[in-house]
Write a protein that binds this DNA or RNA. Sequence first.
DNA 1: ATTCTCACCTGCGGGC
DNA 2: TGCCCGCAGGTGAGAA
Length: 272
Amino acid sequence: MPELPEVEVTRRSVVNDITGARIQHLQMGKPLRWPLGIEPQKLQGQTVLGVRRRGKYLLFDLDGGLLLVHLGMSGSLAFFANNAKPPGPHDHFDLGTDKGLLRLHDPRRFGAAVWAASEQDPVAQKLLGHLGVEPLGPDFNVKDFHAGLKTRSAPIKQVLLAGDLVVGVGNIYASETLFLAGIRPTTRAKKISRPRAEKLYKAIIEVLNKALGQGGSTLRNFSNVRGEAGHFQVLANVYDRAGQPCRVCATPIRGLVQGQRSSYFCPTCQKP
DNA sequence: ATTCTCACCTGCGGGC
DNA sequence: TGCCCGCAGGTGAGAA
């Protein structure tokens, strides 16, 4: 489910609720992708200092360490200021605090909550160390982006998804940004010229910001911590629109599979 | 070093 | 109605 916009929407919707909260209890459900890595009771009494985002990870800064949360494919967070229901069969991580209960709901359990002493902790570095630049941050620039593309022979769609050049672009927004840039998903990254790299660079920023403004995309069940869905999906130009007419030129959108992930493109608007 | 494939897990929609 | 299949917003590990 969640790509950068959804994770950032989640962060923004929870940061005021959780910042300053003192952890009172922690309850785990079924195992998630990775173990928490600490005895849950050792988090009791710690205070949440803030919530940051790195790629698709949420970083809860505690006064005694760091809690990394990933939403996987089907995860979402909910915050209950009071009277939360008991955890359901897909609620696998409950963080009870004096300000309310933060709950990770994740049917497929590809998500995770991982404790690390700090960002330099090997546990954190294993997850964050290889991540590329933040596309909505000050370090994202055309020059470095194009230089990075030049070193990769893989199809551009898969380079975007890999997250080691630029983070946060997942399966929906990869197809959408490539449509906006007029580049086919199969185009080899190193073949992309500087002008086209610049179009793609701008498209990434534009698409992610637009999705943020729509509260993200809700295909099945994504919502922010107040249970509100996103609306970007209805604005998608190509994602999940195989066979439907391109919104620009009416050519039927094509679908294909790359690296076991579906891609979508307009054969007229997007050039190899 | 980079690229590719697999694995993890559950639910849902489509076709028969 | 019910079963089976394929597919779903991610990503680390291991192989090639």
